[in-house]
């Protein structure tokens, strides 16, 4: 066998096998989930509502969420648990990581594309002071469900 043939054989064979090992290993050892569920508690909700009614202001909550998650087409649903609103519903604004803004009132479901294995978004809630508080074991919370696929 010619020596350069041997060297080419070593190169091609070892590079292919190590690339395979690396790609399968990365997929296997980084445990990315395709589905996330979280309940984020609303801090001081009852006292803020009481105070808001007294001074005739709405209550707002704004926070960021960052999770490692499989990339792909993501559907995100954001809703409130433990709050019952009448004619005037609460509004949800979600800003995604590429600067896109989704807005809607009531429990919402958005779909957008992600390329990185991270999920980052900003949530801004405006809750009118006419809403009622429904007693709940874990208190009032924002329920977030994210699913890829």
């Amino acid at each position: 066998m010619k020596w350069w043939k041997l060297l080419t054989l070593i190169f091609v064979f070892s590079l292919t096998l190590s690339a395979l090992a690396a790609s399968f290993g990365m997929a296997y050892w980084s445990p990315l989930k395709g589905r996330m569920h979280a309940e984020i508690r609303l801090d001081n909700f009852e006292s803020l509502m009481k105070f808001g009614r007294a001074v005739d202001r709405n209550v707002t909550y704004s926070f960021d969420v960052f999770w490692p998650m499989k990339p792909g087409k993501t559907s995100l649903s954001v809703g409130l648990a433990g709050v019952a609103c009448g004619s005037e519903n609460y509004t949800v604004t979600v800003v995604t990581m590429n600067g896109r803004e989704f807005r809607g009132s009531g429990s919402q479901r958005f779909t957008f594309n992600r390329r990185d294995p991270f999920l980052y978004f900003h949530v801004h809630l405006v809750i009118p002071n006419s809403c009622r508080i429904v007693p709940r074991r874990n208190g009032q919370a924002v329920v977030i469900d994210a699913e890829v696929g």
């Binding site: 984020i40 508690r41 909700f45 803020l48 105070f51 808001g52 209550v59 909550y61 704004s62 926070f63």
Partner: peptide, 9 residues
Amino acid sequence: LGAPGQLSG
């Protein structure tokens, strides 16, 4: 630990 809230405005 919970999202911080405030009054609008």
